[in-house]
Amino acid sequence: MAFAHAGTATASKPGRAGMRIPYLLLLPGLLWLLMFFVLPLINLAETSTKTPIAGGETGSYEQTFRLQNYVDAFSENSAQFSRSFIYALLATLLALAISYPLAYAIAFKSGKYKNILLVLVIAPFFTSFLLRTIAWKQILGEEGPVISILRTFHLIGPDTSITATALAVVTGMTYNFLPFMTLPIYASLERIDPRLMEASGDLYANGLTTFRRVTFPLSMPGVVAGTLLTFIPAAGDYVNAQILGNPTTKMIGNVIDSRFFRIVDYPTAAALSFTLMAAILILITVYIRRAGTDELV
């Protein structure tokens, strides 16, 4: 017994040091998160229940734990909230419709051009997000190619324009988040063993059935990742609505932006931010549960 004891005592020494290493490796990340995520979040929560100091200067608030702030913030901006989710949903669906065939073609049909095509998908990212969004203003503008083509084919009347409309906002969001949708779907499709498609054909499934029963279900992890990566930032986006929209296309991001920077109404802006965050969390939790892809990831 004495021997065994001595043995475990010496053996556990390097073991204990080894146990600490993962935590030491985590430390920088945890500190970073604490400083720049947890503390600001607490600060935000604290701000969200403040009220203006009576007779005080603009921008001076005191803590009164007024939860009614949330009710007010939501009821005053419910239109912008629902618009945000509708636009984000439309942009996500459009991006999915465009990205899936694109990712499919790159993964299975591009041959030696695969890498070039992948670079082309990411290439727009080398220019600024803002510039690309402003460019859409030109593309959709009165002198732009879209309007003139649509007018040539009499698809729209001479007085209809696209700039400063909901359509322009959704188009801009779709475009801006396209790579976030394409790349995860591509990664998922690319990982599928081509023999599974052959096996499906061997088991009497034609091309369409093979896609429905084998390829698409196996690409679900990419679809889920892509839709999340598109929907979440799109729901909180305000740049597209600002540049490509009009006052009736304001999204919740624009409201938060103006509350914070123009009206200096910190509590409402903070309450809106929290509500948005909670809404997105609930939506994606339901979505991931429904998609049930955890076994495939």
Binding site: R195, D202, Y204, N206, L218
Partner: peptide, 30 residues
């Protein structure tokens, strides 16, 4: 004749079982 119309079935190298389907559904696929 297309592969899916031939009265021929294959046991693939590394089996190529459908990972998203149960064993029952794999066997029932054809």
């Amino acid at each position: 004749t297309k592969s899916y119309r031939r009265p021929v079935n294959t046991v693939f190298q590394n089996y190529a079982l459908f990972p998203h389907l149960t064993i029952f559904e794999n066997v029932a696929f054809g």
